[in-house]
Design a protein around this nucleic acid. Structure first.
Length: 964
RNA sequence: GGGCGUAUAGCUCAGUGGUAGAGCACUGUGUUGACAUCGCAGGGGUCGGAAGUUCAACUCUUCCUACGCCCA
């Protein structure tokens, strides 16, 4: 505790202490969402982090930006709601729990599905709260009282409802198609979850013998009894079903419709004409494996092969299985895909069906089995293994239809994407969107509400009872045997036996409902009990009446949301899907604006990743510099459309900024400057006070504009420079002389009021960026008055509204003082004159501004410029230093002190600069085209600048002349 | 191959059709009882390259180069 001042603030502040104290207070006092029933709503939903997640630097950025917006809106008096929660993260969570089981030597399949899911819930209870605790350390003011989880009962209900509705609307269907199969996780994944990476692979060439004695008749291959094909995946030849050639390829025209007898399997397959074959590539003929390649699947369909008839040669582990036609040699069955690849190549080599790749080295012929080649290979972003295109039955969402409304919304400007440059990417993806595979072969997640009859009929319903109801009404197949073959766990209803689809839904399917399901859609979270009763009596298919009755106040008030802030990396995964679901299910766009920010990169610009070991832990930064400094860094660096490169020295700089503000407040307290009690600026007569009031007004306006445009960097810098440069460096210095006099003089009373008010405005404006230190200082300022601010914390204070305008005279006066001070300091510095030495000054013909300043603010001149006394009139003859301020020249005699040569050099340098400027402007003004064509304001400004610089040059010339 | 983005002071980044700024780093210096996590002063940039539009281009257009990202 310091005793040097009346302030009870320690000389340095301890962020850790302040942060823990205030967060706890805010949360327990319900200040993150105060009761404001009649206030205008403002709503943001937080991109739900994975329940398995822990806070990384990207979360820190994303949540800091959201918190800035939410705190700003809350300060502006809105009913600001920031919805928070976590995502059940199907694959990731199941992996975590399975890994734990593996450590105990157990497997998922040692348990029943129900038991396993129970284990996951147990894990969630124990370890699932990591990231929510960490978000608190960042100071994020979300509404924890309504924390959400995508597996919560009400949310699960919304997911089920959605699936059923989309199914009934014909927007969800079951289809046999190729999916991206992850053999490690044994589940289908969406195309977005596939990461294509270049890997070193090989390109093999095979001879496929023509059947029935056919030969090629083209001169290039006359008499050849085989067709050459090439592949990067030889093992798939076991399931080849055709060879394709381009329809216009003369070389193969004669054999289209003829057949090939495949080596190894002996399968007889047709030669088909298809545009997919590229005549320029290799031999121009390609092997077609419709069951294991996306392009080949399409070729196969065009060739008349139904998906159900496409041959499959791999199991869920990507090991070889017998094909439907039974032609795969037994020695290959059961081999892993990569082992099978080796074996197939060896077999083809042995049977002379392999075309060797020949290179020359120093004239020596070298034979290789294949040509080395870089191959774009799909990997699962979770499992990390090569993805296998696999033919399965899966559930698909008709994304193409759902995408229409969102595309329109963005095009019409109903949803604004910020920065706008992302619109093109959005359109490009949405316009070429593929069916969205939403089923996952997992146990953890929302189980698909589809039941199958014994003949494969599908019944989609919200409950099993409803499914049976549907089945009965549909006249579904009866099961006269009584269902003896059914699993014992299955329910039986009458003579109909249904079994539920074992799969769960893609996690993004549920998170797509986040903006409205978190607010109670389709029911309300607190519906009127009587209405609830009534609802139960409603027929289950009465969609419209149900949602009308169930719609909560919360949903009505906070949906659509105002804004969504997310990283651009989840634009397709999540943002676009929210738009699709929102539009279809609620008829509304989920939010009015979408702000996309970039990635936080390592200091060298590379992507942070655990494997590279260059991950910066935000919690470590908070430990070292405080949450406020980290947040301010994030805001100051967030310019639209650019990634953020980690720069710890900047975080440190913003920690210093916090210290600066801390000490400025200590100074204020030492002078008896305390909390303000008005929103409006206090009345002021002193120039410095009038000036700072105007500066506050300007800053608030600019800050509101920057925040409205989501220019976080501009907003942060405005507050930073106002607080440091204007308030600390000038205003506090300007008012210090006032406190040297009578403590209860009118000037001192006015200044304390204005300074206290201005400091409060800084704290409020800075609060969204640095919530902790501002709350602490706000409280301490309140304590200064003897009247606690416990009932009026800054988090729910009022946003500045100075109700005052800029006083031009005050601005001119203070600008002049600043100009004189700066010029004098610079001159002293250059001439090596002690900065502290007080010097007498003379001003022969003061301008109006100068005269006024000397009359009203001579103490400030004495203190800042260290000039005293200042005499209006000619300086005595002799060596002197001369400085200019505005239109004035101030002569500072320095008998025996000043080095005339140095002063001359200094003035000459300044003169040269002024002349250069003046000359350049003169040139421009002398150009008739400029005067004629340029905007009048530009010409006017050039004239004014020219006048200024030539006058300045004249003054400097006169000053030089005075020196002789 | 298609699309997008970025190239501005040693480093990290703002910026506007009228002649360039911040933070950090650097140099010099420390006067007033808030602050050395500070103050004051200063040095430093042909705004990636070329061409064009314009009275005027760092800013707009085209091309080129480099790097990054997304999609195929």
């Amino acid at each position: 505790m310091t005793s040097e001042t009346t302030s009870d603030l320690p000389t340095t502040f301890d962020p850790a202490d302040i942060e823990a104290r205030w967060y706890e207070h805010w949360e327990t006092s319900g200040l993150f969402r105060p009761e404001r029933p009649s206030a205008e709503p403002f709503t943001i939903v937080n991109p739900p982090p994975n329940v398995t997640g822990s806070l990384h630097i990207g979360h820190a950025l994303d949540n800091t930006l959201q918190d800035i917006v939410v705190r700003h809106e809350r300060l502006k008096g809105k009913d600001a709601l920031w919805v928070v929660g976590v995502d059940h993260a199907g694959i990731a969570t199941q992996m975590v729990v399975e890994r734990q089981m593996a450590e105990r030597g157990e497997k998922r399949t040692d348990y029943s599905r129900e038991q396993f899911v129970e284990k996951v819930w147990e894990w969630k209870e124990q370890s699932g709260g990591t990231i929510t605790r960490q978000l608190r350390r960042l100071g994020c003011s979300m509404d924890w009282s309504r924390e959400q989880f995508t597996m919560d009962p009400h949310f699960s209900k919304a997911v089920t409802r959605t699936f059923v509705q989309l199914y009934n609307d014909g927007l969800i269907y079951r289809d046999k198609r190729l999916v991206n199969w992850d053999p490690a996780l044994k589940t289908a994944i969406s195309d977005l979850e596939v990461e294509t990476r270049d890997v070193q692979g090989h390109f093999w060439r095979f001879r496929y013998p023509l059947a029935d004695g056919t030969t090629l008749d083209h001169p290039d291959f006359a008499g050849q009894d085989y067709i050459e094909v090439a592949t990067t995946r030889p093992e798939t030849m076991l399931a080849d079903m055709a060879v394709a050639v381009h329809p216009s390829d003369e070389r193969y025209r004669s054999v289209v419709g003829k057949h090939i007898v495949l080596p190894i399997t002996g399968r007889r397959i047709p030669i088909v004409a298809d545009e997919h074959a590229d005549p320029e590539l290799g031999s121009g003929a390609v092997k077609i494996t419709p069951g294991h390649d996306f392009n080949d699947f399409e070729v196969g369909k065009r060739a008349g092969i139904a998906p159900a008839d496409m041959l499959n040669m791999l199991d869920a582990d990507a090991a070889v299985v017998q094909t439907a036609d039974g032609k795969v040699p037994n020695e290959l069955v059961g081999l892993d895909r990569f082992e099978a690849r080796k074996r197939v190549v060896a077999m083809l080599k042995d049977s002379s069906h392999l075309v060797l790749h020949v290179t020359e080295n120093d004239g020596e012929r070298i034979e290789h089995e294949a040509e080395p080649r870089t191959i774009a290979t799909p990997f699962g972003d979770r499992g990390g293994v090569v993805i296998e295109p696999w033919l399965t039955d899966q559930w698909y969402v008709d994304a193409q239809k759902l995408a229409k409304a969102p595309i329109e919304a963005v095009r019409e400007g109903d949803v604004e994407i910020v920065p706008k440059s992302w619109e093109k990417t959005f359109f490009n993806w949405m316009e070429n969107i593929q069916p969205w595979c939403v089923s996952r072969q997992l146990w953890w997640g929302h189980r698909i509400p589809a039941w199958y009859g014994s003949n494969g009929e599908v019944f989609v319903a919200e409950t099993e009872e409803e499914a049976y109801e549907l089945a009965r009404h549909s006249g579904a197949s009866r099961n006269p045997e009584g269902g003896a073959e059914l699993d014992p766990g299955l329910r039986r209803g009458d003579e109909i036996k249904l079994s539920r689809d074992p799969d769960v839904l893609d996690t993004w399917f549920s998170s797509a409902l986040w903006p409205f399901a978190t607010l109670g859609w389709p029911e309300g979270p607190t519906p009127n009990p009587s209405l609830q009763e009534k609802e139960r009596d409603l027929p289950s298919d009465s969609e419209a009446s149900r949602s009308e009755v169930g719609a909560s106040d919360l949903l009505a008030k906070h949906y659509p949301n105002d804004l969504l802030i997310s990283g651009f990396d989840i634009l397709f995964f999540w943002d676009a899907r929210m738009m699709m679901m929102g539009r279809h299910l609620t008829g509304e766009n989920p939010w009015k604006r979408l702000y996309l920010h970039g990635l936080v990169r390592a200091a060298d610009g590379s992507k942070m990743s655990k494997s590279k070991g260059n991950v910066v832990d935000p919690l470590g930064l908070i430990d070292r510099y405080g949450a406020d400094a980290l947040r301010f860094f994030m805001a100051a660096m967030e310019s639209q459309g650019r990634d953020i490169k980690m720069d710890e020295s900047r975080v440190e700089g913003y920690r210093n900024f916090a210290t600066k503000l801390w000490n400025a407040t200590r100074f204020c307290q030492s002078q008896g400057i305390s909390a303000s009690d008005t929103i409006a600026a206090p009345p002021a007569r002193l120039a410095a006070n009038q000036w700072i009031v105007g500066e506050v007004a300007k800053t608030v306006n600019a800050l509101d504009k920057a925040l409205a445009e989501l220019r976080f960097d501009a907003a942060a810098n405005l507050v930073y420079h106002f607080a440091w440069d204007r308030f600390c460096d000038w205003y506090l210095e300007l008012i210090k002389p006032v406190f040297a006099g009578e403590a209860d003089s009118p000037a001192a009373i006015e200044t304390r009021a204005v300074a206290g008010w201005a400091l409060d405005q800084i704290l409020v404006m800075l609060h969204p960026f640095m919530p902790f230190i501002t709350e602490e200082l706000w409280a301490k300022q309140g304590a200064m008055t003897g009247k606690s601010r416990a009932d009026y914390p800054i988090i729910t204070a009022k946003w500045p509204d100075p109700q005052a305008s800029v006083n031009d005279e005050a601005v001119a006066a203070i600008d002049w003082v600043i100009a004189l001070t700066t010029a004098t300091r610079a001159a002293r510095n250059e001439l090596g004159i002690s900065p502290g030495a007080k010097l007498a000054a003379f001003i022969p013909n003061p301008s109006a501004v100068a005269a006024q300043v000397f009359e009203r603010s001579s103490a400030a001149i004495e203190r800042l410029a260290r000039l005293t006394p200042v005499t209006i009139g000619e300086a005595p003859e002799g060596p002197a230093m001369q400085v200019t301020a505005g239109e004035d020249v101030v002569v500072i005699p320095l008998e025996g002190v000043v080095d005339i040569a140095a002063e001359k050099a200094r003035l000459e340098k300044a003169l040269a600069a002024s002349r250069k400027e003046a000359k350049s402007l003169e040139g421009r003004l002398g150009n008739p085209k400029f005067v004629e064509k340029a905007k009048p304001e530009a010409v006017e400004k050039a004239r004014a600048d020219h006048a200024h610089h030539s006058a300045e040059a004249d003054r400097l010339e006169a000053a030089l002349a005075r020196l002789g």
